[in-house]
Every structure is written in C-alpha cells, then in structure tokens.
C-alpha cells in the first residue's frame, strides 16, 4: 500500500466531504453518488482480482442480485429496504460460496469464462422472469425511507444530496474494511497465493479456502453496490447484471491500479465521469471509451496510481 491506512481513509473522507463545494448544480450529487457506488463494487474486485489474482468477468451478476433483492423483497416479502440490502448480501454470499467452490479451481481465462457464464445466467433469469422482474424493461424500486425519516426529524435534503452522503459513507466503510483486510493475515495470504500458490500452500495457506473467501467478500461488495444503485435510481433493469457492467467494473479496477483501494476509487471516478463528459459527443462515446481503455493499458499497464507512484519515486 502506498501510504498508511488512516492517511488513505482521511484523504478519501476529505474528498467526499469537500467535493460538493465545487458542484455547480444538484445534478452533480447524482454523479458523485454513482461514482461512490461504482467505487464500492470496484473495491470488492480489488480484493479478488488485485490481491488474490483471480479474474471475474461476471461480477455484475452479484450487483444484479443486490439490486433486485431491493426491488423484489419489499414488494413481495414486505421487508424494509435496509433488510433487503442485507438479504441481497446473504444471497450473494451464499451463491458466491456455492459456485466459487468448483469454479475457483479454474485458472486464468477458464475462470474468466466460468464467471462470465455466471453473470450471463443471472442476466438471463432477470430478463426472462418477466412476472417477477418486469423483464428487459426493468421494474421500479421502493423508497429506502431514510430520507423521509430525516424529514420527520426536521432535516430536509434532496434525493441527490441524500444519496451522495449515504453512498459516500458506505464507500468509506467499505474502504476501511478492505484496508484492514489488506494488512491482515487473510489479506497477506491472498496476495501470497497470487504470487505463488505452491509457496503459499507450503507455509500453511489453505489456497482454495482463501480464494473462496475473497470471492465471497467481493461478491458482497458488488451486491451492496447493486442495492444502492437500485435504491437511489428507484428503477432497475437487467443491464445492472450484464456483461458490459461486469467489464466496466473490472476496467475501473485495473485502470486505477488493481492492487490498491485508492487506485480503484480513482478508476471508478474516471470511468464514471468519462461517459458524462462524452455525452456532448454522444456519437463518439464508444470510440473514445475504447481508445482510453487501450491507451491506458498500453502506457500504464499497472494502472494509473501505481504507474504515477513509480514515476514519482524515480524522480527524487
């Protein structure tokens, strides 16, 4: 890690708190909240891809589960949305544990195709079970209710502002948990098995078990991100679980520097903002996005943050 845990968290907290000062309009709170949600999912991937070295091309599937848990559980089970978030986490964790056990034996591209298959299966169920999910057109999501609670307590905030702070706080917690993990026995073992599975096992690391733990943890991160996305938009479509969303979050992770939480957040910032900037040139959006992905990976193969850090280090 580049700097110590508390410095990173403090920087993150200050940025979250200070950014609204620069917002010209309420619309920017929405984008900020979206960045935080993406960053949360990406933080989970840092643990799985960056530390444990395991590829997932289907992680949006878990975001889909989290999102639809918040859409379906309040409506059909009468659960409070907050409980629905937890339900989504539990389902995602359970499913990750179930499928992770066999597929994490696979390596590299084979693991890629297996996770890809998982993501596609989730998308397909969400798309095809119209009676429940409304199919490809999506469905509306009940309100969280916290904002109303705040209003009753005399605090009036707009939806955008509320979700900005809510997602910012959740991201901070997520980053704190991840940074704790990094310098713990578990985090070190994950990084170790990434370096050499054989060597890791000869020092007593239960490689399959640790890979599974990383997979489950990262699934829960994605699930919470999906839940928050559904709740703040008030509407959700199966695209949240789709292949392109999976690729998007992996790209964010790698773009910023897949080994570090701060890098991941930086990646989320850039790739969330890019389409917003590019809407001006809607025609060229894909062209530019593709070019950015290629160029960054060629010139900064380890991601923005580590490459910048390395460059700073070289110049005394």
């Amino acid at each position: 890690m580049l700097t110590s845990k508390w410095v990173q968290l403090a920087v993150l907290a200050v940025l979250i708190a200070a950014l609204p000062l620069l917002f010209p309009s309420g619309y920017y709170y929405r984008i900020g909240a979206l960045i935080f949600v993406n960053a949360l999912a990406v933080t989970g991937l840092v643990i799985l891809v960056g530390w444990a070295g395991q590829i997932s091309l289907g992680h949006a599937g878990f975001a889909g589960i989290g999102a639809y848990a918040c859409a379906l559980a309040p409506e059909h089970l009468g659960l409070h949305p907050v409980v629905a978030i937890v339900l989504g986490m539990v389902i995602s964790a359970g499913l990750a544990a179930l499928i992770g056990k066999p597929i994490l034996r696979l390596k590299g591209y084979y693991l890629g195709v297996a996770t890809l298959g998982f993501g596609i299966l989730v998308t397909m169920v969400l798309t095809n079970e119209r009676i429940w999910t409304g199919g490809p057109d999506g469905m509306s999501v009940a309100k969280l209710g916290l904002r109303e609670l705040l209003r009753d307590m005399g605090v009036r905030v707009s939806g955008g502002v509320f979700w900005y702070w809510a997602c910012g706080i959740v991201l901070l917690i997520g980053a704190w948990l991840a940074l704790n993990l990094y310098n713990s026995a578990t985090g070190r073992a994950l990084r170790a098995l990434h370096g050499s599975e054989v060597a890791a096992s000869t020092i007593g690391i239960d490689v399959p078990r640790l890979k599974l733990q990383a997979f489950v943890i990262s699934a829960v991160y994605a699930s919470v991100a999906g839940s928050l996305l559904a709740l703040q938009n008030g509407f959700i479509t199966p695209d949240v679980a789709g292949f392109m969303h999976s690729i998007e979050i992996v790209t964010m992770a790698v773009l910023g520097g897949v080994g570090s939480v701060v890098g991941a957040i930086l990646g989320a910032v850039i790739l969330t903002l890019l389409p917003q900037v590019l809407t001006v040139f809607a025609e060229y959006e894909q062209l530019v996005l593709g070019a950015v992905m290629i160029l960054v990976m060629i010139f900064l193969p380890r991601g923005l943050l580590p490459s910048i850090a390395a460059r700073l280090k070289r110049k005394p």
């Binding site: 591209y109 690729i247 593709g290 290629i294 060629i298």
Partner: peptide, 27 residues
C-alpha cells in the same frame, strides 16, 4: 505494445478494441 502485461490488462485492451471498432463502425 502491451507485450508482457498481465492477463487482466490484455483482456481490457481487447475489449477496449472491441468497443472501439464498434464505435467506429457505428460512425
């Protein structure tokens, strides 16, 4: 130009190329 980059980076490059080609074709 990306010779020796990790697998994930290569995946992203080729997916980026795919998005790029799609964007260009659309234009």
């Amino acid at each position: 130009p990306a010779r020796g980059a990790p697998v994930v980076s290569i995946i992203i490059i080729t997916i980026g190329a795919s998005i790029f080609i799609r964007g260009a074709s659309q234009l």
